[in-house]
Amino acid sequence: MTIDWFTVIAQAVNFLVLLWLMKRFLYKPVLHAIDQREKGIAEELSKAETQKGEAQKQKEEYDQKKEDLNRQSAVFLKKAQEDGQAERQRLLEEARDAAEVLSTKRHEALVMEEKSLRNEVNQRIQKEALAIARKVLKDLAGASLEEQMVGVFTQCLGNLDDMEIKTLTTALKTQPGKITLRTAFDISRELQITIEDSIQKIVQRKPEVNFEAVPELISGIELSVNGQKMSWSVADYLSSLSEGFEDLLKVKVR
């Protein structure tokens, strides 16, 4: 149990060597590793903090943008609604105008139709009336309707006042051509002579009369000299009947 001084010296050397080796191979690398890790963790943490800050900033930015977008979209929506309303109004007005035009056209078409119908009715009435009159006259007096009409016409000629006679003679004088007499039917030579005689009585000279048959006249006689016209027609008698029909149709159209 004594102290061996050589062992003491040897152990001191051993211990110093151990100190150096442990420092070299244990403490330095391990402490370095710990430090590095701590540094790494601190860096990670600070990075995370920075990223968090950035994320927060970005979030705020996005929130702001979202809010702006919402506001913008609200504005756009309102504008779109207003535009839509205006467009609707415009379309409605257009449609109304179009409907009005259509209605006007239809009305015009109806009026036209009415007019043509009326004309047709007039003509039919005239024809029928004439046919009836002709038949009645024929049955009653044995004379043809044409004769009666010529008779009436000559009577009319005879009843002309001075003013009318003057106009007629003046027209005849300036007109070197023939007098045109239009009838709805071909009249016999006797009737032509009767008419010519009546005219001669008025104008005091033998007229050159050109007889024309125009079926559109229905039943009537028309005398034309140099633009001057003189006529008698069943149409005159039918006008009151026609007016009655017109009134009736107007009521129906309404």
Partner: peptide, 30 residues
Amino acid sequence: KLNATIVYTWGLMLILVVGSMIITRKLSVT
């Protein structure tokens, strides 16, 4: 004199140092 104290000390030193070297050869900092 080379006695058991010195020899055993060397043995301990060897184990400590070699063990440290082996473990610290591949240190991770992650």
